[in-house]
Amino acid sequence: MKVLPFTIPASHDKTIMVQTEDMPHFYTHLHRHKEIQLTWIQEGEGTLVAGMNMHLFHAREIYLFGANMPHVFKSDPEYFSGDSTKKIRTVTVFFNPTDKLAALFDLPEMRNVQHFLDAYNCGFKVPPQLFSDVSGRLTGLLNSDGIDQLMQFLQLLKALSDVKGLEPLTVDTFPKSINDNEGMRVASIYNYIIQNYNKDLTLEEVAEQAFMTPHAFCRYFKKHTRYTLVSFLNKVRINEACKQLMSGSHNGIASIAYGCGFNSIANFNRVFKSITGKSPRNYKEQY
Rank of each mutant, 00 (worst) to 15 (best):
K199M: 08
A102F: 07
K34G: 14
S177L: 13
C242P: 11
F232P: 02
T39N: 12
P168N: 09
Y227V: 00
K243H: 15
L56W: 02
S231G: 08
P9A: 02
V134L: 07
N251Q: 12
M54V: 12
T276G: 04
N53V: 11
G46L: 03
K235M: 07
L166M: 10
M246K: 15
V230W: 02
L4S: 14
T202L: 05
L166T: 01
L138H: 01
G44V: 00
T15Y: 09
D106L: 01
Q155F: 05
N112P: 07
A187G: 14
E240D: 15
F174L: 14
T20A: 11
I88F: 07
R32S: 15
I275P: 06
A159L: 01
V163S: 06
H33Y: 02
R219P: 00
L203F: 00
F174K: 10
A257H: 01
L154G: 14
K125N: 14
S132V: 11
I275L: 10
A67G: 15
M110E: 03
S11K: 12
T39G: 12
E208P: 02
T47Y: 07
L150Y: 11
R185G: 00
Y197C: 00
N234I: 06
N269V: 10
V236P: 02
D76I: 04
L245A: 08
D180C: 12
T139R: 07
F105V: 06
Y27G: 04
V186D: 08
Y258H: 06
G277E: 09
A207P: 09
F80W: 02
M1N: 07
D76K: 09
T202C: 01
F153D: 00
K222L: 08
F116A: 11
Y192A: 02
D13W: 07
F153A: 00
P168M: 06
M1C: 01
E45R: 14
D22K: 14
A187E: 10
L166C: 01
V18S: 13
R185C: 05
N198G: 06
L160V: 10
N267S: 13
L150C: 04
R226Y: 10
Y227E: 01
A67H: 12
Q155G: 07
N112V: 11
K164P: 02
V271R: 04
E109L: 11
W40Y: 14
D180F: 06
